[in-house]
Simulated scan of single mutants.
Amino acid sequence: MPALSTCPCGQDAPYAACCGPLHRGETTASTAEQLMRSRYTAFVMHNAPYLQQTWSLTTRPAHIDFDTTREWTGLQIIGTTGGSPFHSDGTVEFRAHYTAAGTPGIQQENSTFTREAGHWVYVAAL
């Protein structure tokens, strides 16, 4: 993976101190939002193993195909429900900005998260 100064997830921190430890398996997400941000960064970096690992066993696809024509350009968190270190489920609504063939676009969704074996995982978009 390339060295990144600022983490793609939108936090004001270097990748190595932000989503990097999650991607390397040195720590796990403490909130649904933190997991959402790390998964966005995994999409930016085409990190399929991390996406698979953080996808619920009940909805995980057999493999992940990345749209190579899409370049992710920014993440905006709109809101969350639950998803704190004290919850067992939660939602994160977000807008992921991208360009495809030079045309800007936005993917907006409200994603659900739950805990499996004590760790936050992505379930599905509402």
Results as ranks from 00 to 15, higher is better:
F43E: 02
P49V: 09
A32I: 05
Y50E: 08
L22V: 07
L22D: 02
T31S: 14
V92T: 11
A42W: 03
I77N: 04
S84R: 05
F94A: 08
D65Y: 01
M45K: 11
T58C: 00
E33S: 08
T68F: 13
T73S: 14
T27N: 06
N47T: 07
G25P: 13
N47A: 13
T58S: 05
G90N: 14
G74R: 08
M45E: 14
T58G: 00
G90K: 12
R39G: 03
S30L: 12
G90V: 14
A32S: 13
G25C: 14
A62R: 08
A42K: 04
A29E: 02
M36N: 03
R39W: 01
T68R: 15
A96E: 04
N47Y: 09
I77F: 03
H46G: 07
T68W: 11
T41A: 13
Q34Y: 02
T69C: 05
Q53W: 06
T31L: 11
G25L: 13
S30P: 04
D89K: 09
F94Y: 14
G90D: 13
A96K: 03
T80K: 05
A42I: 06
Q34N: 09
R39H: 04
V44N: 06
P49H: 11
H63P: 00
P61Y: 00
R37P: 07
P85K: 07
T41H: 02
P21D: 10
W55R: 02
Q52I: 15
R60Y: 02
A48Y: 06
S88W: 08
Q53R: 13
T58H: 01
H23S: 08
Q76D: 15
M45L: 15
P21T: 10
F66M: 11
T31M: 11
A32L: 09
F43H: 04
D65I: 10
Y40N: 01
A96Y: 01
G25Y: 14
G79E: 09
A96H: 03
M36A: 07
T58M: 00
G82E: 07
P61H: 00
G74L: 10
A62P: 00
Q34V: 11
T80R: 06
A48H: 06
G74M: 10
T68E: 15
F86A: 15
P21E: 10
R24W: 05
E71V: 15
T28A: 15
L75H: 03
S30H: 13
G83N: 04
P61R: 00
F43Y: 13
P85T: 10
D67A: 12
M45N: 13
T80D: 02
T31G: 10
S38Q: 03
P49D: 11
T27F: 04
E26H: 12
